[in-house]
Design a protein around this nucleic acid. Structure first.
Lengths: 175, 175, 175, 175
DNA sequence: TATGAATGAGAATTCATTCAT
DNA sequence: TATGAATGAATTCTCATTCAT
């Protein structure tokens, strides 16, 4: 059995991704993780702190998954298309739960800069991911925005329809 | 002075748009609205019920605002561009709070179909708005997705940068 | 059966006087009072708020008791002496628990002005009580200080010894 | 660097005197002292135990300070007056925090004899201090009580007013 | 002697909802 | 229709203490 800290992070990873931030209480986390309440607060200063940790872990996990999913593709075009296929893979895997970062963005008060920063960094990294592939910021932002919409709209309609459509559009955009 | 029901709706409209669903308690609503607790539950079965009502009112309000904002434009191109300007107008007015519908989508449990339906309907209407203007579902969905991203990214970065960029892109897309 | 609010105040009165502020939790108060937790917070904004209310009630109670205890005495000297006898009566009644106001003074952080004010007012009133009787502020403060010490020392040593001694001293001081 | 035990005692000395007993948690003590939790309980059986130790150290410290402060004075009268000046000196130094012993007396359950004993001993010693100087137990207790009030009232009103008044009164009392 | 990790019990407070009038 | 009072269940967080090493 892993250490309490690891169990907390693992549990949080599952619960926040599945239920969101506000719907997941500390009580559920500790009971699912099999950890005492005080042990939780030994490792995390507050729920907000845990959220930051969660987002960091999620960030790493998500990009790792993206990278392995797109690793085979060699040319630019298929690398980008793969990214959209990755979204469908994730929707399948996580049941159209959408983007943990954007979900939490909606759940926190607007002045929570600590969490906001982590979310912004994640998305800035993603935006940069496309920029480094495409070397053209208008095109890369264009695709980034289709990518973002693809996530949200598939969450909203519980369907990959607009991801598929985005793929077609993107296919035409890439030179 | 308006009726209790109207006062509740008005207050909810302000608070949900400003603070979100979960951060707004019934207590704040009734105290801001100057209404007794029991009176609230006389008119609304539950907070969820109120949420549906809020989304309906918001739906109507939002499209009304969009229509008046874009009323002057006569040709297609400027009508679409105006829609993106409308987003900047709203960000200014509502301090980059993003889309009430998408925000609540993130705040509710995924199986809450009652609320999910209202959100889906709103977005379907918006998607249709572009379709009816453009008569070409690939193009209209393309623009719809840029529009959606524009909302979210400006909320995320508290900046209109990507709205401006979207406008340029959209300008090229429209024939 | 009285109203929840009354039951809370009655219970608090007993518990704070007996156990002090910090050793008395909300849980004990509501369970002893037979009231739901949320009902408690319906009537009192916070524990601090309850403390202020408690001190106000205690203030009135204490002076009422003092007045009735000393009501019979007609001349100045015996009125003052009666006040010291009153302390012994209270020690007997409340088992040498000392002064609720001074006890709480020791229990709160020094910057809690809200509570500090109530305590200061109580003691200013007491100081004034002696002044109005004696019309000589040096003498009245002299006696006030012996009175205060009498409370504290009898609490400390669980004995009325120094009250008795004070009475003798006071007897000589009054002209 | 001193031993853990010494560091704990030094830290406790500062924190208990400044914040009181209940407002000072073990966690703050060990973190301020730079000592591990288990090391703390190696040296002190419980917080209560630490409290006793604190009071003992404080006792010694306080009397030492008093003695040095009054060392210069040769005649009886000025030695007594000096004691009251000492209170003002301490109020200045410790920001009107009052008597550590009386403060803790208010913070503990009444049946905590272990701590109560230490407090009683301290005050008995003080009472004896005046007795040995004055050789007249009525007079010495009279002054002792003014002394005690002086501490408490200056703590209560954050002012030396009643200490000054006490000095005048005491000046007349001493033959 | 020294420690970092872990804990059970309890702290104050807020939630959406219902009841009696 | 309208209401003020009352509630059970949950919230986040802190307490002094102990265990395994």
């Amino acid at each position: 059995m892993k250490s309490p800290r690891e169990r907390i992070i693992k549990t949080t990873f599952d619960l926040f991704a599945k239920q969101g931030y506000n719907s997941t209480g500390i009580n559920q986390i500790i009971s699912d993780a099999g950890v005492a309440k005080a042990s939780f607060y030994l490792h995390f200063k507050s729920k907000e702190d845990l959220c930051v940790e969660f987002l960091n872990v999620r960030h790493e996990y998500w990009f790792n998954e993206l990278h392995s999913f797109t690793a085979q593709s060699e040319d630019l075009r298929s690398k980008i298309i793969d990214a959209f296929d990755f979204l469908m893979y994730m929707n399948d895997k996580e049941n159209f739960r959408g983007c943990s970062f954007l979900n939490i963005l909606s759940e926190i008060p607007m002045d929570n800069v600590k969490i906001l920063n982590v979310i912004q960094t994640h998305k800035a990294d993603l935006r940069n991911y496309f920029l480094e592939l495409l070397k053209d910021d208008t095109l890369s932002d264009h695709i980034y925005m289709l990518f973002e919409s693809s996530i949200i709209e598939s969450q909203l309609f519980k369907s990959n329809e607009l991801i598929v459509k985005s793929k077609k559009i993107v296919n035409h955009l890439i030179p």
